[in-house]
Design a protein around this nucleic acid. Structure first.
Length: 883
RNA sequence: GGGCGCGUAGCUCAGCGGGAGAGCACUACGUUGACAUCGUAGGGGUCACUGGUUCAAUCCCAGUCGCGCCCACCA
């Protein structure tokens, strides 16, 4: 016996353990069908489950469960990312909380890294357990971590290989430097933030022309300490005579040249621009063109260094700005200050203002790697769903800049480069190999020093689709599952990750890492704002699971996941789908009580009664629609379609109509209905299983005894379209319309619900009579009628009259309702029909329509007119009887 | 400055060249033994605006207005 109510919490824990112990999440060899593989985007080891995870993993799990049921050998590869900066920050915060001065530096590198591993062992990876709460079914036995030995080996192999091909190199150029985290970051980690600032105009004196100045404008006056030039546009008449002259840099006293360069825009600022090659990306290029020196005046903490005049040394960059401005003002160099809104680069992790900083870093030649990655999408070897994201991908890939891959952190993959005493670099997969290379190079044993830096986390993530399958070994899994089937992720990660996997996959495997890339939206709060801890508008998915169950959460997410749109998510939505789960549970209880069953040898195509033939056809249609929707990544359609089929078609109509048949005296009808009701419910459980795995699995076991094993291992329904019977459809359409019409009329005329009206059917042909005969009991029950008879003679005027096709159904009611009201109702209905007829006639009267519209469209309109006119005539007759 | 997306019922959103839809909310009624986490019925929309294409436009095209996001080095 099923419990009166469904208790998700216990069921979920129990079933998850069952699935896992039965090994259902591991790939099963399947003959014929192609393998199916999804690489789980590895969540940060520091992460905890938020709504974004709930969305992406629900989608992935639904796909994976769907394809398992389709009989494909399915691998969902799980794992976690070491998340360099994020993890290092967590442990550094711990150290700070413990009062360790100087943080990680006090410990030293080895001890610190060990400490991070300890942290990971104790508190990392919480998210993996949380994933199980939403029912995620990856093959946990294959779980990987980006820093584990195998993946680290893949990283070293990839690095060395790219280095030898010249695609990784060391270069001294400007990088985005995070003064707080003390590391370089890539362009992608720069967050441009619009900020209220100032534009300061500085009048620099011209050498040899007393009293003459050239005015530059800047938002960063402190960098003037590192100015090595002033640029004007070559065509700019105002400054033409100054080109080639020297400026005496105030506060510093350095002589710096005025150069002509296209970069200077006469329209912007004052038309002359100060050039600080060491502190501005554009200036760096200008400086290069004109041989200007790059003088860095800041150290790695963002403090003024010894390259600046003595009074400023040691000052923080923002302090220095104030001092420089004050001194410039005192000297009369500061001639104007205006308010100015502009974009200021911030570090996405630290939130501090980033500094263009001149350092040696490792770079990856992304432009070269991007070429095949662009072609792969152009050719369709990999395709984005929805397609519009291809634009975003192309746009970025075609303008890709060198990728700075070194980070001045301790947690991560240390770069496999060793330096000899003379700075000679040896890039090898191991220290031994580097030593050997050094021995060959120097002809003797020398001490090597390893590069201190680690790699950008995304470097190892980029290898994920093949490193997790065993690369660089040629494993059977690699051969079987690469390229993977689909990558599921959010658009915010296209550049960071999708692009890098495409580049790395094509480089090392010679094939795209995935055939399709499904991009879903972001989960926002009810008002459409991004969820963030600081705004306090985050919804905790685990809380929702506690309250409503995992299935309710999953179905709400899927039903809200329309392509190309973000999801505004509110708790009320989950409540609605919790109700749906409850509805399904109750329908199952009904089936149980009425001895619905999965009859062995039941052939849905062999049903005799129209009701059963109809629901079998509807089931086939619903299954086909769900299959198509899932295959096309239209999760909302799949979820809403099954929701509607289950609730409306099955529960509201079929079950209600089947009640008399379940108690029929005719044993054949009774048994057929029990078997059909059970069979359809079983199909529903199968179809819903990828989206709502828990409740369906539970019902499958409790109600049907799980014939053939767990639902998670069952086959997806493959129902023949031939199961759709048009005659049964027409009959049930008639029946539901009749019930609907009677119900509506009753409500509109305030017929007391308890009043069982007698129904007389007039002008009923043989088909209608047969239908009334077959469905009389159901009709009476659902429309709350008493006796149902064939009307003889004249139609009574003192009756509620509804027209269904050619028949007029009259319900004598003189004592219960006001007939004037009934007349009013009929008039309204007639008016509505007349409006419709008017529109159709207008169309048909248009010769161009009749001439140019497709014949079937014209024919359809004609039929509509005939039907509407017939109904109007019958309603008019009904009205005449009253009036 | 470039690119993308979005304006459809009070709210959240589907849909899409030929009869405007769902869920929630709202109104009325209902103790019909699966279900009140329910049932039945109902109200509510010049499908942002303006032009164009078409026999026919909510849907296609162009423009306007409003909103959001992404990219970009603008002093």
């Amino acid at each position: 016996m099923l419990d009166k109510t469904y208790q998700p919490a216990e069921v979920e824990a129990k079933l998850y353990a069952l699935w896992e112990s039965a090994g259902l999440f591991a790939p099963k060899a399947a003959d014929g069908a192609a393998p199916y593989c999804i690489m789980m985007p590895p969540p940060n080891v520091t992460g905890s489950l938020h709504m974004g995870h709930a969305l992406t993993f629900t989608v992935q799990d639904t796909l994976v469960r769907f394809h398992r049921m389709l009989g494909r050998e399915t691998l969902w590869q799980p794992g976690m990312d070491h998340a360099g900066i994020a993890t290092q920050m967590v442990v550094e915060r711990q150290l700070a909380a413990e009062g360790v001065e100087m943080g990680r530096r006090a410990l030293g590198r080895d001890a610190f890294v060990e400490r991070v591993w300890e942290w990971k062992a104790e508190s990392g990876g919480m998210i993996a357990r949380q994933l199980q709460r939403i029912g995620a079914s990856p093959d946990w036995s294959r779980e990987r971590f980006t820093m584990d030995e195998g993946l680290s080996r893949a990283v070293r192999r990839a690095f060395v290989s790219l280095y030898r091909k010249g695609l990784i190199y060391r270069d001294k150029r400007l990088v985005n430097w995070d003064c707080k985290l003390q590391t370089a970051v890539s362009d992608l980690e720069v967050q441009q933030t619009e900020t209220n600032g100032h534009l300061w105009h500085l009048a620099y004196p011209i050498e040899g022309e007393p009293g003459r100045t050239i005015t530059v404008a800047t938002t960063r006056p402190e960098t003037m300490l590192g100015d090595t030039g002033v640029a004007v546009h070559p065509e700019d008449e105002r400054f033409r005579d100054l080109v080639g002259k020297q400026v005496i840099l105030p506060l510093v006293g350095r002589r710096i040249p005025i150069v002509a360069d296209e970069y200077s825009d006469p329209e912007k600022g004052t038309g002359a621009v100060k050039i600080t090659p060491a502190h501005d990306f554009n200036d760096f290029e200008v400086g290069r063109r004109h041989g200007l020196e790059a003088i860095s005046i800041l150290d790695e903490h963002g403090r003024v260094n010894e390259n600046a005049p003595e009074p400023y040394r040691g000052l923080d960059r923002f302090e220095a700005r104030k001092r420089v401005l004050a001194d410039l003002e005192a000297q009369g160099v500061l001639v104007e200050t205006e308010q100015h809104r502009h974009m200021v680069p911030h570090g996405d992790r630290s939130g501090t203002v980033l500094e263009p900083f001149l350092t040696d870093q490792w770079y990856c030649d992304a432009a070269t790697l991007a070429k095949p990655a662009i072609e792969a999408v152009e050719s369709g070897a990999a395709r984005f769903v929805p397609k519009q994201w291809e634009n975003t991908y192309f746009e970025w890939m075609r303008n890709i800049q060198p990728w700075c891959i070194s980070r001045q952190l301790w947690w991560g993959h240390q770069i496999p480069a060793w330096y000899g005493p003379d700075g000679q670099v040896f890039v090898e997969e191991s220290e031994e190999a580097a030593q050997e290379a050094a021995r060959v190079h120097y002809g003797s044993e020398v001490a090597l020093v390893r590069d201190e830096d680690v790699l950008d986390t995304w470097f190892s993530s980029g290898l994920w689709p093949f490193s997790t399958l065993g690369w660089p070994e040629q494993t059977p899994e690699l051969a079987r599952f690469y390229p993977t089937s689909v990558l599921v992720t959010g658009f915010d990660i296209i550049f960071f990750w999708v692009a890098r996997m495409m580049m790395m996959g094509l480089e090392f495997m010679g094939e795209v890492p995935f055939r399709e890339i499904y991009i879903h939206g972001l989960v926002r709060d009810e008002k459409g704002a991004k969820m963030s801890k600081s705004k306090g508008n985050v919804i905790d998915p685990l809380g929702l699971i506690d309250q409503y169950g995992a299935d309710a959460l999953r179905v709400s997410i899927l039903a809200s996941t329309a392509q190309g749109r973000d999801i505004k998510f509110g708790e009320s939505r989950v409540e609605g789908y919790r109700n749906f789960v409850t509805k399904l549970w109750n329908a199952a209880r009904f089936i149980e009580m009425n001895e619905g069953r999965l009859a062995s040898g039941f052939d849905p195509g062999a049903c005799r009664t129209p009701l059963n033939r109809w629901i079998v056809g509807e089931t086939a249609k619903a299954a086909a629609a769900a299959t198509e929707a899932l295959q096309a990544y239209r999760f909302n359609e799949a979820a809403l379609g099954l929701y509607h089929f289950t609730w409306s078609t099955y529960c509201d109509w079929y079950v209600e109509l089947a009640k008399p048949l379940l108690a029929a005296e005719d044993a054949a009808v009774r048994e057929e209905t029990r078997a059909t009701a059970g069979w359809v419910l079983a199909q529903i459980l199968h179809l819903l299983h990828p989206m709502a795995p828990f409740v369906t699995e539970e019902l499958w076991a409790r109600l049907f005894g799980a014939p053939g094993g767990m639902l998670a291992a069952a086959s997806w329904p493959a129902l023949d379209r031939a199961l759709v019977d048009e005659d049964a459809e027409a009959e049930l359409s008639w029946l539901t319309r009749a019930i609907g019409a009677v119900r509506a009329a009753r409500t509109e005329l305030n017929v007391p619900p308890g009043a069982r009206l007698r129904l007389l059917a007039f002008n009923a042909d043989a088909t209608t009579r047969a239908r009334l005969e077959r469905h009389g009991e159901a009709l009476a029950r659902l429309a709350r009628l008493g006796a149902i008879e064939i009307g003889e003679g004249a139609v009574p005027g003192n009756a509620l009259q509804v027209v269904v096709d050619e028949a007029t159904l009259a319900m004598p009611v003189a004592d219960v309702v006001d007939l004037a009201q009934e007349a009013q109702r009929l008039r309204k209905e007639i008016a509505r029909l007349e409006g419709e007829i008017g529109k159709i006639e207008q169309k048909l009267a248009n010769p161009k329509f009749v001439e140019r519209a497709p014949a079937e469209v014209v024919e359809e309109q004609r039929e509509r007119r005939v039907d509407a006119e017939a109904t109007r005539a019958r309603l008019a007759a009904a009205l005449a009887r009253i009036a």
